[in-house]
């Protein structure tokens, strides 16, 4: 056990013995030179196109003036952040963002997995492929059309109310917003998202199944002992990444769906920033909010990664 010497190593351990460090490194380079050669273009890509522009993050700490540029604009320190934190709605915005995200995590994350498992259980191949194809179709319909349908279905005199002979104003009720938002999202994307898991299932060695069948395992045991462990690495990694997206609830669909009567549950960080942008196009403000979100997301990711490394052995690093 060695202690970390840099903060980077706390997060991404190198596991090197202190002595003979240079020798270890040069040996590694020699042994794996092809691997490093492969890695080089990828790292270069990230360096140029992602780290290159990263200086722009300081916009969050400036009063950005496009004509003066990033380095010519006045420094305002934490003013933009304070503007955001001082909003009367700050707490509510955070709560709504997290609430929607967690609801989507609890229901929307497992749904494609379950779908993939169910599709996998089908015996007849043509039907299997039909189900898979049909379920991914709504993914391609634009969100404007999907919300348009929803507004029509859930209107007071719309389909849903007619079906159940009720008169509930779904689209104007804050109590219903999250369910409608998350539910419609699952409906639209579950098929598409299941593709990754189907592919993971497809890479499982079929001989494992044969062996299990010979041992007399029924389909439930096969699923439990073969399929699920087979896709577990994929599931875990995607779950870690999903934790790193907790604060990222986009505004596009919400803007189409919400109205002031549902602000209580529907107004999230991104929609608030959007409305503020109508009053004053303010790069700095949205950059500051974005940085805030990213910092929280990243911290969550690191935490999730660590926990996962301990519990399951799978992790990003």
């Amino acid at each position: 056990m060695r202690t970390a010497t840099t903060s980077l190593e706390i997060i991404a351990p190198l596991n090197l013995p202190k002595k003979g460090r240079w020798q270890t490194i040069s040996r590694d380079f020699r042994r794996n030179k092809h691997v490093y050669l492969m890695l080089l273009p990828v790292l270069l890509y990230y360096l140029i196109f992602h780290y290159g522009p990263m200086y722009g993050a300081v916009i969050a700490f400036e009063d950005f003036n496009p004509i003066k540029g990033v380095f010519g604009s006045t420094w305002v320190g934490l003013q933009n952040f304070q503007d955001f934190f001082s909003s009367v709605y700050f707490g509510r915005l955070i709560f709504n963002t997290v609430a929607i995200s967690v609801l989507d995590l609890v229901f929307g994350f497992p749904a494609p997995i379950i779908l993939a498992l169910l599709i996998n259980e089908l015996r007849w191949n043509p039907f299997k492929r039909l189900v898979q194809t049909v379920t991914y179709l709504p993914h391609f319909v634009s969100v404007v059309v999907v919300v348009g349908m929803m507004v029509d279905f859930f209107a007071r005199d719309g389909l849903v109310n007619q079906l159940f002979a009720t008169n509930v104003a779904y689209m104007q009720s804050a109590e219903w917003f999250r369910q409608l938002f998350v539910g419609s999202g699952i409906w639209q994307h579950v098929g598409w998202l299941s593709i990754v898991y189907l592919a993971a299932i497809a890479t499982i060695d079929p001989q494992l199944y044969d062996a299990a069948k010979v041992d007399g395992a029924d389909r439930f045991r096969q699923m439990w002992h073969i399929t699920i462990p087979g896709i577990l690495p994929t599931v875990v990694i995607l779950l870690i990444l999903r934790m790193g997206m907790l604060m990222s609830v986009g505004y596009e669909k919400i803007i189409l769906m919400y109205n002031p009567l549902t602000y209580e549950t529907a107004d999230v960080i991104s929609t608030y920033v959007f409305r503020r942008g109508i009053l004053q196009a303010d790069f700095s403000f949205s950059a500051a909010v974005g940085l805030f979100n990213s910092a929280i997301n990243f911290a969550l990711l690191i935490g999730a990664n660590r926990i996962s490394r301990r519990l399951s052995g799978h992790s990003l690093w």
Binding site: H50, P53, G56, A57, P66, A295, L316
Partner: peptide, 19 residues
Amino acid sequence: NPAMFFIVFTMFFSGGLIP
């Protein structure tokens, strides 16, 4: 591991549209 960190970091922090 450092390479993974280097890469995943960019999922969270970027310079924005103008740069």
